[in-house]
Amino acid sequence: NRDAHIAAAGITVSDIRESKYDFSRPYSESASTVIYRVRQGVPAPASVEDLIGKKVLILANSIQAEQLSRLKESFPELAWEATDELTNTDILDKVFNEEVDYAIVDSTVYESQSSFYPGLSDAFVIGRTRPIAWVLTHNQDGSIKKSVDKFLGLESTKVLITELKAKYFSKENPLNFFDTVTFKSDLETRLPALEPYFKEAAIRYDFDWKFLAAIAYQESHWRADAVSPTGVKGIMMLTQAAAKEVGVEDRTDPVESIFGGAQYLINVKAKIPERIKDPDHTWFALAGYNIGFGHLEDARILTQRANKDPDKWENVKEFLPLLSKQRYYQTVKYGYARGQEPVQYVENIQKYMDLLEWEKQIQEIREAREEAMRAIQDAENQSAPNGIILLDNMPDTL
């Protein structure tokens, strides 16, 4: 409609789309992937024939719709449902909840969300891999395409895209199937009573409340009565010494534990050099708390010896596991340590943060959708005599 010049939204190039729009040079690629729920004794679909007679869900007006329409010429019995009311995540939800048999989505969509859906897997690809590019409005001199292509061709842009892919589309879940499913259950049953205290502590100590909640889940699975074999207790699993340091009298009191844990984290972060900026500063603090700051410093020395930046967590976490190997730990001050444990500890907290952020976003979207539907229903019930619906109280979220 010529209301915009560029659409940069992970859009796959297709023959039909190329007949309507200009496209930039590709910056990535994707393929239509069949997604299914893994179930014991039920084989994964292996071909288009396996989709016949099954409930298959796709987005309307998508590349998948184009591909299935062409496939139907060879497989007349092939059928599917195309929706313009659901998002890709809603579609994955339906497969996860076994409301449909299969979904077909872009591989990049599944890759970015797969760790949030334990039990889902990709089966096979439909059609060929397609380029992903920016959609451009037609202009006579082609200046927009030239400028965009120049930008996407810059070495700095290519590096940026590689970094973004690593951050958002290559997530490996350090949690196993049971961990993730248990987290989703605990999110509904245990977190609601604790969430107000996490939020209050986050405001007082200037943290993201989801970060505090993720640490607490890693420590105790949000159990106020949790006790370890070494005697640490409570939601934040404080030692007696740590509890005394932050003034916690009853480690099993969830409010005391949460606020005490947040204060203790402030104290721990103070041990990391100020020149190291967040989020690296925080990851170092958590790793040092887990393994001991002497061992953390040893790992940073190993990192520096390898000519990598010892102030970057992504670098140091490569060298922490080497502290369990004699050829390395005998060359540093504090010696042997189980260096993989702090790496796993930090990665678990990061993943719990991701899961919590994800679930909260989905919850907010669903609540907004329900609010909008209620507002529409109320508006219809208050229709003016001439049939005009009164929309004064429609929520902004609509």
Rank of each mutant, 00 (worst) to 15 (best):
S257R: 08
A60N: 10
K312S: 06
A7F: 15
L120Q: 09
A133R: 05
N386W: 09
H295F: 10
A262L: 12
G119D: 04
R25Q: 07
D253E: 05
A9K: 11
D141K: 14
L286W: 00
L187S: 06
S170G: 01
F169R: 11
Q350Y: 03
V38A: 10
D106L: 07
P131F: 12
A82Y: 08
D179Y: 06
K277P: 01
A133T: 03
D15Y: 05
F124C: 13
F151L: 12
N267M: 08
Q64P: 03
K360F: 14
G231C: 01
A44Q: 10
R128N: 09
N386H: 06
K171N: 06
A372T: 13
S32N: 12
G119R: 04
N290Y: 08
D225Y: 11
R70L: 13
K54Y: 05
S115E: 14
T108R: 15
D311Q: 04
A9G: 08
A4E: 09
Q361V: 08
Y102S: 01
V48H: 02
K244E: 10
G260D: 02
Q330S: 15
D311N: 11
R204F: 13
N386E: 14
W358T: 11
R39G: 03
A31D: 09
A202D: 07
R223S: 08
Q330P: 01
R39K: 15
V135A: 05
Y110L: 08
I58N: 04
P76K: 09
L191K: 06
I35W: 02
F207G: 03
V42F: 08
V255Y: 00
V181Y: 07
F183M: 09
R128D: 12
I63N: 10
L355D: 00
Y328V: 08
E367V: 05
Q64W: 03
Y334H: 14
A60E: 15
A44R: 14
N1A: 14
N139R: 14
I6Q: 00
F116P: 00
N386S: 09
L356S: 08
K277H: 03
A306W: 02
R374V: 13
V227K: 09
T12S: 12
R37S: 13
E85V: 06
L154Y: 14
K146T: 11
V316K: 00
T108L: 08
A193H: 03
G41H: 04
A213W: 05
Q40S: 14
T303G: 00
E314A: 11
Q40A: 12
K271F: 04
Y27C: 01
K150D: 11
E364P: 01
E245N: 11
D206W: 04
R37I: 02
I104P: 00
L152I: 12
L390N: 14
V148G: 01
V109H: 06
N173H: 07
L51Q: 03
N381T: 05
Q113N: 10
A270W: 06
K269A: 12
E77T: 07
T189A: 07
D206E: 13
K94W: 06
P45A: 09
P254Q: 07
K325R: 09
